[in-house]
């Protein structure tokens, strides 16, 4: 994706950084649509399990409120810390502090993996509890919204792992720190999306 010519850009800003911001702007509408769907269908499910209310089916099966706030709070904290770590890693890359770069990039990746793991656990748990994509509108819109966020996190993890391997090979130099900055910007965006999803899905009854 290298720019066509090396001459200075009109705005003085790097084209790739501008591109990633443009992409993030576009993604805002992607998640806005998913969040809208979730909110429009809030409370419209015909059958349980429900996110915040207990439900007993006509057949007598009882469901507790399904959301696990504690677990997800931990996941949220992990994602927030990962944002902190990646920005420290970037700082290390820009100042040519290899140890700082590798340590914090590694920590970021760990946080990301744990977040995805948390989500995989949450999803399997829900399926065991009887909430599937097909069960009701809550299940459909919940899995779609958080699932697409999770996919974004996974993509971010893959991108960061690539950067980590490059860093190990000493290819994330201060001059090339921008490569890491692009990944970091994407990663932060995934984080801010979760900052919106967390209260909207988990904390608002």
């Amino acid at each position: 994706m290298a720019p066509a010519a090396d001459h200075a850009t009109t705005t003085g800003l790097d084209s790739r950084k501008m591109a990633i911001w443009t992409f993030i702007g576009s993604e805002c509408l992607f998640f806005a649509s998913l969040i809208s769907t979730y909110l429009v269908y809030r409370g419209k499910s015909l059958v349980g399990p429900f996110p915040h209310e207990a439900w007993t089916s006509p057949a007598g099966q009882h469901f507790e409120p399904i959301l696990e706030i504690k677990l997800v709070t931990v996941g949220t904290a992990l994602l927030l810390f990962s944002s902190l770590f990646v920005v420290i890693a970037l700082n290390g890359a820009q100042r040519n502090r290899r140890g700082q770069l590798l340590t914090f990039l590694g920590l970021t990746i760990m946080c990301g993996i744990f977040f995805v793991g948390m989500q995989v656990y949450e999803f399997t748990h829900f399926v065991h509890e009887g909430l599937k994509l097909q069960t009701n509108l809550f299940g459909a819109s919940f899995f779609t919204l958080t699932g697409f966020h999770g996919t974004h996190v996974t993509m971010g993890v893959i991108w960061l792992i690539t950067m980590f391997i490059l860093a190990l090979r000493g290819k994330v130099t201060p001059e090339k720190a921008l490569n890491l900055e692009l990944a970091a910007l994407y990663w932060h965006f995934v984080d801010v999306v979760w900052i919106v999803i967390f209260p909207v899905v988990y904390l608002m009854k």
Binding site: T22, G25, S26, L29, S33, Q134, A140
Partner: peptide, 24 residues
């Protein structure tokens, strides 16, 4: 950039309905 993500989501929901049996 701002309009296509919306149709993408609408189509994804339709795809989930048709392929995976959700009820959007």
């Amino acid at each position: 950039l701002l309009a296509f993500p919306v149709i993408t989501v609408a189509l994804i929901l339709l795809m989930f309905d048709r392929f995976f049996g959700s009820h959007f």
